[in-house]
Design a protein around this nucleic acid. Sequence first.
DNA 1: TGTTTGTTATATATATAGTATAACAAGAAT
DNA 2: ATTCTTGTTATACTATATATATAACAAACA
Lengths: 132, 132
Amino acid sequence: MFIQLDFETDIPIYEQLKDEIIIGIAKKELKPGDRLPSVRALASDIGINLHTVNKAYQQLKQEGFVLIHRQRGVVINPDGAPKADEQYKQKLKMSLRPTIADSLCRGIDKESYFTIVEAIYEELLEGGKSNE
Amino acid sequence: MFIQLDFETDIPIYEQLKDEIIIGIAKKELKPGDRLPSVRALASDIGINLHTVNKAYQQLKQEGFVLIHRQRGVVINPDGAPKADEQYKQKLKMSLRPTIADSLCRGIDKESYFTIVEAIYEELLEGGKSNE
DNA sequence: TGTTTGTTATATATATAGTATAACAAGAAT
DNA sequence: ATTCTTGTTATACTATATATATAACAAACA
């Protein structure tokens, strides 16, 4: 797991951290049961504050990606993340609508959009090969 | 154009406003050349501040969705929004990656994802029928 | 008994979001 | 010319989010 942050963008650091970890799980570079670095270790490693890491971890816990034990630290959920229910899909749809509308206005039709999504799925599914 | 805002969510009002207008353009409820309400009129109508509306309009102008004339006000770009270039697609891809990784972790495969995207395209493309 | 873990509590600095007034400047209508 | 409406600019203020900095607490483990 290489964590690369962009301090120029307006995306909060803790969000980028969450994203990197979730992508790591999707790519299976992070497997169920794997331990994440302690909040202090990771913070010091990246050069950010302990609380920023903690915020990311807390939200990952809230969303079911990790479990946090009192002393063992933060662990990728051995049961995997909770499966998407209808409510999740509904929220996903709502969050995608503005982006898709924007793309549509700019001439990206359904097929072009699919091509982009396809490429991302490829990257996430096949990218793990080098790590197995 | 009905503009419905959610004051509970953490999505900024001016973002929601932008989204609604972009969706309106995508659905062709707002056509090239159409005038938008003045910043004061819309602000008063929705019950928000003039500057919040202005911020949304400025960004829509920046992104090429509207033109702003000194006295005529804000007008949907008669030439349509600028077509997506490679840079746009690259940014789109980067912004989609975390969401798709999240979905993938929750068991949404490519086909399920496509189904959701498909539904949104349907809604945007066919939804305009009642307005023609 | 230490050491490491997450956790909690303050405090501070900065940026963003939103509001509130007021005034300015250009175009259009009368 | 005058008036009205348009976007625009300038301040000021409040609230919230982000990020940092220290410090201390509590549980688990070696």
